[in-house]
């Protein structure tokens, strides 16, 4: 059943339910609102989440609905408020901590890695840090080198964390609840370029998991493996390739740690070709990890070397043409797919 607070939901109650069209931003806001309504232990804290309405307007209106105790503006003290989220989780609450931009999360890296990711293990399983950290990630808005990076692959290196990346309206709406139901620290990365994206919420959908990758477009000539803000680029590339007779399968990883090896390997065994699209830097990237797993588990099924489309290894520049050149684009994805399928595209 669609959450009754969604716009248009009242008229959707009678079957067949009409799809609800909303933005990624609205979907995240509805996810927050539903979580706050469902569980009195849930609260949101971070910089400018309350009176300002959230730096990307995600939490706009929540302060008025839930009050300052549960929509909690913090000082610019990332380490303190992330650590406070850890302590509040240990104390029996279900905090959602918002970090305005992934680059700012480095000020809290000590808490995220040394405490949140380590407490369960180093206490012999006594402590469970049921904390959700939401972070805006990614480039594309000319914000230069201190507001544009994609560090989710970097965080996916750390045992003890779960890394989830909603790329669709459905996942933006429902991944938060799955993250809150998880007893482990979950970092939920929202690509800032997706907030204005609009789409239909799947009618009747009430929940999603945070354990499995999802095929977003079926195909047989190659597998394009991606996540987050790169998914729309991959789907655009797939449509363009289809016009030329190449049908690629687009696999959305959804969760970067733990990786859904089974889904990756199953798709690559079918298509025998893989292109990984990752907005992180290439060296030591999530794309490198996915490539390695394919090579380890499906080497003899491959018909072509694995290709990667990653961000150029520069701090993200300001100028539009330079930023565009640094990032994965549908054109670069198309070129990479053409290389793995060979000149005639027949496979």
């Amino acid at each position: 059943m669609i959450d009754p607070v969604l716009p248009g939901a009242d008229s959707a109650r009678t079957p067949p339910p009409a799809p609800v069209r909303l933005s990624y931003r609205d979907a995240v806001r509805e996810a927050l609102r539903a979580a706050l309504r469902a569980d009195p232990r849930v609260f949101l804290m971070g910089e400018d989440v309350g009176r300002y309405g959230g730096s990307y307007a995600v939490s706009k209106g929540l302060l008025e609905e839930f009050g300052p105790e549960r929509i909690r503006d913090t000082p610019l003290s990332e380490s303190a408020f992330v650590g406070a989220g850890i302590g509040a989780a240990l104390g029996g609450l279900r905090p959602i901590v918002e970090i305005m931009t992934v680059n700012f999360s480095l000020l809290a890296l000590d808490q995220i890695m040394n405490n949140a990711a380590s407490y369960c293990h180093m206490s012999g399983g006594q402590l469970a840090v049921g904390l959700v950290i939401r972070l805006a990630t990614g480039a594309g808005r000319q914000l230069a080198a201190q507001h544009s990076h994609s560090l989710e692959g970097w965080y996916a290196h750390i045992p003890g964390l779960r890394i989830v990346v909603p790329a669709t309206i459905d996942d933006a709406r429902f991944m938060l609840a799955a993250a809150l139901a998880c007893p482990d620290p979950v970092l939920l990365f929202e690509h800032a370029a997706l907030y204005n994206a609009e789409g239909d919420l799947t009618p009747g959908l009430a929940a999603v998991d945070i354990d499995h990758a999802a095929v977003r477009r079926p195909g047989h000539d190659a597998t394009v493996i991606t996540y987050g803000g790169s998914l729309p680029k991959c789907l655009a590339a797939a449509a363009s390739l289809a016009a030329g007779g190449i049908e690629v399968e687009v696999l959305d990883l959804r969760t970067l740690r733990p990786l859904d090896d089974a889904a990756i390997v199953a798709s690559v065994r079918r298509t025998r070709r893989a292109v990984i699209v990752d907005e992180g830097w290439r060296s030591g990237s999530l794309a490198a990890e996915v490539t390695t797993r394919i090579v380890e588990q499906a080497f003899y099924d491959l018909e072509a070397p694995v290709e990667r489309v990653c961000t150029a290894e520069v701090p993200i520049p300001y100028a539009k043409h330079l930023e565009d050149a640094a990032l994965p684009s549908p054109e670069r994805i198309v070129d990479a797919v053409r290389r793995v399928v060979g000149g005639d595209g027949s496979g």
Partner: peptide
Amino acid sequence: HLFDVAKRFYGGNAIVAAGLPVAVGLALA
């Protein structure tokens, strides 16, 4: 890293000062 949740003993923290934010969060709860 000595821990005993039954005694509400939350470590055992070996990054200097990193226990303070966690204590603030426990107090917030």
